[in-house]
Simulated assay, not measured.
Amino acid sequence: MDSIIFDLDGTIWDSRQTIVRAWNQVLTQYDEVNKEVTEDDLKRVMGLQEDEISEILFPELSKEKRKEIMVACGKQENAVLAEKGGELYDGVEEILQHLSEKYKLFIVSNCQDGYIESFYAFHQVEKYFIDFENPGRTGLSKGENIKLVMERNQLESPIYVGDTAGDQKASEVAGIPFAYASYGFGTVEKYDYKLERFADLKRFL
């Protein structure tokens, strides 16, 4: 193993509380939306791409209106996350520091452009990562984005760490082992490694 590629939500941090605040600020501006989103709503859709999330949360709206709302929510989300941050799981920075001394570290997340940058901006952990990717920049699936990071950084034997079945499938697409962050948001039956907490990554040190 020469590198570790991480999912973000449910793997490194839980940003739902901040995101809910940001989204509900935006939703008040739309007469078509008569509800607030909750942390449980976000848990159901974490790890999905933007169009899938909007279809689940706002099925009554047109595709065009869902897109408009998601773009607005994404912009507000990025701004609030850069200012307020999210909740890092226990030991994240210490373990990232130690891992980065032995392995190349990366992030591939199903998020909008600017989201990972907001994570970096507040929590000041960019120094531990070499590269990142997301569909907001590329329009590609998570599996294809993992392969893109592998290719441009010439990785030979990475693993992917994530918390959902979608993460496991993305690992299969990329042809690399999958470490299941079982403390996160999803339920996964098939994996190569299982992490009960972020600190379990110490086994790779």
Rank of each mutant, 00 (worst) to 15 (best):
M1V: 03
D2W: 15
D2K: 10
D2S: 13
I5Y: 06
D7W: 06
L8Y: 09
L8H: 06
D14C: 07
S15N: 11
R16A: 15
Q17L: 13
T18R: 04
R21Q: 10
R21E: 12
A22H: 00
V26L: 02
V26Y: 01
K35D: 10
E36C: 15
L42Q: 04
R44Y: 06
V45A: 00
G47D: 00
E52T: 06
I53W: 01
S54D: 04
P59V: 08
E60R: 09
E60K: 13
S62A: 08
K63T: 14
E68K: 09
I69S: 00
Q76R: 15
E77V: 01
E77C: 10
N78G: 09
N78H: 01
N78D: 08
N78A: 07
E83Y: 14
K84T: 12
L88T: 12
Y89A: 07
V92W: 04
V92E: 11
E94N: 10
I95T: 11
Q97E: 15
Q97C: 14
L99I: 07
S100W: 01
K102V: 14
K104F: 05
K104P: 02
L105E: 01
F106M: 02
I107M: 13
G114V: 09
I116N: 06
E117K: 05
S118C: 05
Y120I: 05
Y120R: 00
F122M: 11
Q124R: 15
V125N: 06
D131Q: 04
F132V: 02
E133P: 06
R137S: 08
T138S: 13
G139L: 05
K142H: 02
G143I: 11
L148W: 08
E151T: 12
I159D: 08
V161M: 05
G162L: 07
K169P: 03
A174E: 10
A179M: 02
A179C: 11
G184E: 07
G184D: 06
T187H: 01
Y191K: 05
K194H: 02
L195C: 03
D200F: 11
